[in-house]
Design a protein around this nucleic acid. Sequence first.
DNA 1: ATGGGTTACTTACCTTCCGTAAGGATACGC
DNA 2: GCGTATCCTTACGGAAGGTAAGTAACCCAT
Lengths: 111, 111
Amino acid sequence: MKDVAQICPLYHKAIELVGKRWTGAIIEALMTGSRRFGELLEAVPGLHDRLLSERLKELETEGLVRRRVHAETPVRIQYELTAKGRDLKKVVAEVQRWADRWLHAPSGTRG
Amino acid sequence: MKDVAQICPLYHKAIELVGKRWTGAIIEALMTGSRRFGELLEAVPGLHDRLLSERLKELETEGLVRRRVHAETPVRIQYELTAKGRDLKKVVAEVQRWADRWLHAPSGTRG
DNA sequence: ATGGGTTACTTACCTTCCGTAAGGATACGC
DNA sequence: GCGTATCCTTACGGAAGGTAAGTAACCCAT
């Protein structure tokens, strides 16, 4: 049983966190500024309120998202990225670049 | 109902693809060169054979991974990234950089 | 004061995905 | 043919996700 280099556990945790279902989309939607609950639902097609609520709580726990309550009527709640969340900007940008290159025209996958 | 900009569907597909459970880890393990089935199992702690098999098939279908059979004894099967897969190098690198910055010491999440 | 509108969740239920263990396919050495 | 090695496949219970309905707080209109 020869030793094989194991992948970096920090990388693994990061990609599972950001790549968890809907999470990457929510982060991109917040990348341009703070958003309300309903706005996030509109920004991410297919995402439903139950999962959005669940994901926002996870992101808050992980310290990527901050929740701000404005005591107006009706109550307005804004979600925004923390510094930790905003620092994913380059990750998001590289994923976007890859997507534009390889997912737009479904061809040229040999190599 | 005011219009909210929807996130890019290509980005969404990309992040859900790469971020799907175990997939990001498998891709990183293949980033340094071709690997055998058993080597991948060793490289990614917690990953079991059923899921590895499932993910490799998906990655082949998506054109990110190529499967090569060597008719030796016992049969040797090598998995390697295609050009499409290798082009995720910068994505992996940025995730790694973020992970090193923010997940190593669990502090400083305000902002 | 009661009924309805708006926003942000929460609960409930069922289906799909994942984790774990066991079994199968192929090929060789004895 | 029996054991060993590698690469999957099948089976099944439990966790996660999809969908719809319900709750809570607040205001306004009737």
